[in-house]
Simulated assay, not measured.
Amino acid sequence: MKTTPFHPRLVELNDTGLWSHWSGYLSAVRYDFSSKFEYFGIRNAAAFFDASPLYKFWIRGADAERYLAGVMARDVRTVRPGRAQYTVWCDDEGYVLEDGVLFRHAADEFMLTAAEPNLSFLQSQAIGKRVEIVDVSEDYATLAVQGPRSRAILEPLAPEIAELSYFGFTPAKVAGHPVTISRTGFTGDLGFEVMVGADDALPVLDAILEAGQPHGLRPFGEEALNMARIEAGLPLIGTEFTSARYAYNAAERFTPTELGLGWLLRGIDDDTRPFVGRDAIRRELADKTSRWTTRGIVVDWRAYRDLYEAHGLIPEMDEIPVGWETMLYDDAGERVGYATSLMYSPMMQRYIGIARIKPELAAVGGTVQVEQTVDHEYYTVPAEITTLPFFNPERKLS
């Protein structure tokens, strides 16, 4: 089991000793004995997350833009140097293989970050093109600094970020070491990600820790990250969707539209960009064959409270997302979908979920019945269908 370049410092901060495995690396589940403390660090001050296990691929060459325009579902040609974009890539049948963030460093130079290995797929699409694809995952460490005070912490170290816009990035130096700082993250809040060479990771982290001390900077682990990203309505591979590469059947594969990512497909009718899966996705859109619509759901707190109190129980309000799919029904008891992520939101003081609902029943403002187990029996409570995200503060973009 590998450890990230930041690990020597992070292990000293981990009071729980709880670690999970992410891409062969140790990754903290939580540092504090309550992940809620870490969550409020993100929302009220600032907190940092070790995102180093992300895979990183340099994509370079005279045909780099043309190559990426033919692989990624979102049009990379609209991105200028110094900007990044969230994107997905699909198989020939239009099912999502994975999502990631693409950073454009120059006209012919990009870096792609992703949660899982993709080198073989990326190289298979490069045949006949003047492009080089290199896996540099172990060469860099990535620290996500998130929360309303993140800019105040990083700006004295790297003044270049003062005017950095959402999904912009810039080269800088922290404690004399070269870094790339992007205004990105997975929390739905104001935040930045610092990418640094592996050999320079510890002095950069030390400088950020020192600068963050007056602002209450603290580490956060996977549990708090999961809470924040659900409030932000952000899909997580392995939870909201399975890579089509590993799916056993069609029920485990999803199109961008079914995942609520149809907004990425702007310009899909442009015949100068026949990306992988485009024809299948166009047929889906034309024939209206999407099986699911992704929505948010907000559970009726009164009905939830009354259900538990009727059994002489205190209503559970657990901010840790349930580890399984939660079934959804209509008023007649017919199953109409399922929640992929369900949790009690500390910010909203409600149970919320990212849900997959049959399109004809997914109108915003409608109602579904959420399955609950009380005293070993199944019950349901109503939930309102909403748009995503649940939490979208102005500071994220300001």
Rank of each mutant, 00 (worst) to 15 (best):
T3A: 12
F6T: 01
N14L: 05
D15S: 11
W19L: 00
H21P: 15
S23I: 13
F33G: 13
F37G: 13
Y39D: 01
N44W: 10
L54Q: 07
W58E: 13
R60T: 08
A73M: 08
R80L: 15
D91R: 01
G94E: 02
Y95L: 04
G100W: 02
G100N: 03
P117E: 03
N118L: 12
N118R: 09
S120H: 02
R130D: 14
L154P: 01
L164F: 11
Y166N: 11
Y166G: 08
F167T: 13
F169V: 07
I181D: 00
T187S: 14
E193I: 06
V196R: 02
L202H: 06
L217T: 04
F220R: 02
G233I: 04
P235V: 00
L236F: 15
I237Y: 10
A244R: 00
N249E: 09
N249F: 09
F254S: 06
L259C: 06
G260K: 00
D269R: 09
V276T: 05
G277E: 03
G277D: 01
L285A: 08
S290Q: 11
S290A: 13
S290C: 07
R305T: 11
E309G: 09
E309M: 15
E309L: 11
I314G: 09
I314V: 12
D318R: 10
D331Y: 06
A332D: 12
R335A: 15
V336H: 04
A339F: 03
L342F: 12
L342W: 02
S345C: 03
A355C: 08
L361A: 04
T367H: 01
V368W: 00
V368D: 00
T373E: 11
E377M: 15
E384F: 06
I385A: 03
P389S: 01
F391Y: 07
P393L: 01
R395V: 14
